[in-house]
Simulated scan of single mutants.
Amino acid sequence: MAEYPIPKSAVIFEEEIKKSRFITYLQHTEGLSEARAFWEKIKLTHPQARHHCWATVAGNPEDSLQFGFSDDGEPAGTAGKPMLNALQGSGVGEISAVIVRYFGGVLLGTGGLVRAYNSGVQQALKLLETEIKIERIAFRLDCDYGQWGWVQLLCEKYQIAILSQDFQVQIHLMLGISEKMIEPFSLELTEKSAGKLMLQPLEEGE
């Protein structure tokens, strides 16, 4: 999946279930380290809460290596996994959910906990605004000043992000191109430049 929705802004949803207070936080987080930092931030915000349960789809929603969750002291399988299931069901990527629970003295039972944590994320997702992220692959392109005008127009035509530009003897460009645009862009680039301009894949570490 080269395109998928990501959160546009943060969401907070609060409800009370059998005297326990549940506060759900949703936020855009890119990568597991950002997701864990968000979790730690919420824990510091609510130091008196009994539980700070967490789940994340920290990258492409189809990339299971970017999934994570924690029950944070709730019975195993009753919090983090139901929260993750709700996030996965939404199809949204680069998203984290933290649910803070202030215990009200009434036990909910395992079924009640699963419903509460899954529902908290589901309710928060209804309030979430999203935008589409297009995954792009980075390429280098060197062109002459006389070619710069039509190269810019070509980038606009194929929705290519110009990540950096360096004006030296030639113009050195770093381009971000979505997978489906690589072939048509390359073909038109070759055609317009009579075979003189070629996309260069970035070497590892560049």
Results as ranks from 00 to 15, higher is better:
105 G>W: 00
98 V>W: 00
74 E>H: 02
63 D>E: 09
53 C>G: 07
122 Q>W: 02
95 I>W: 00
11 V>R: 13
32 L>T: 15
89 G>F: 03
70 S>F: 01
117 Y>C: 11
54 W>D: 08
34 E>T: 06
77 G>L: 06
35 A>W: 00
58 A>R: 03
101 R>M: 07
15 E>Y: 10
93 G>M: 02
42 I>F: 05
77 G>T: 03
31 G>D: 08
20 S>E: 01
23 I>N: 04
71 D>R: 05
14 E>I: 04
12 I>S: 14
105 G>D: 03
56 T>E: 01
27 Q>S: 13
62 E>S: 12
52 H>L: 10
82 P>F: 00
114 V>N: 11
125 L>V: 01
131 E>C: 12
64 S>R: 12
100 V>L: 10
90 S>P: 04
85 N>I: 08
15 E>M: 14
119 S>C: 08
124 A>T: 01
84 L>I: 10
108 L>Y: 03
101 R>E: 07
41 K>E: 14
66 Q>R: 10
82 P>T: 05
64 S>V: 14
20 S>F: 00
11 V>W: 06
129 E>V: 06
49 A>C: 07
118 N>V: 05
47 P>D: 05
76 A>V: 14
14 E>N: 09
119 S>Q: 13
32 L>Q: 13
17 I>L: 13
94 E>L: 07
89 G>P: 11
90 S>A: 13
119 S>Y: 14
99 I>D: 02
43 K>L: 07
48 Q>R: 15
47 P>K: 12
83 M>L: 05
69 F>L: 15
20 S>M: 02
49 A>P: 03
118 N>K: 15
35 A>C: 04
128 L>G: 11
103 F>I: 07
58 A>F: 02
82 P>M: 05
43 K>V: 08
37 A>I: 11
113 L>V: 09
37 A>K: 14
126 K>L: 09
117 Y>N: 10
50 R>P: 04
94 E>Y: 10
45 T>A: 15
46 H>R: 05
122 Q>M: 12
13 F>H: 15
110 T>M: 10
52 H>G: 08
127 L>E: 15
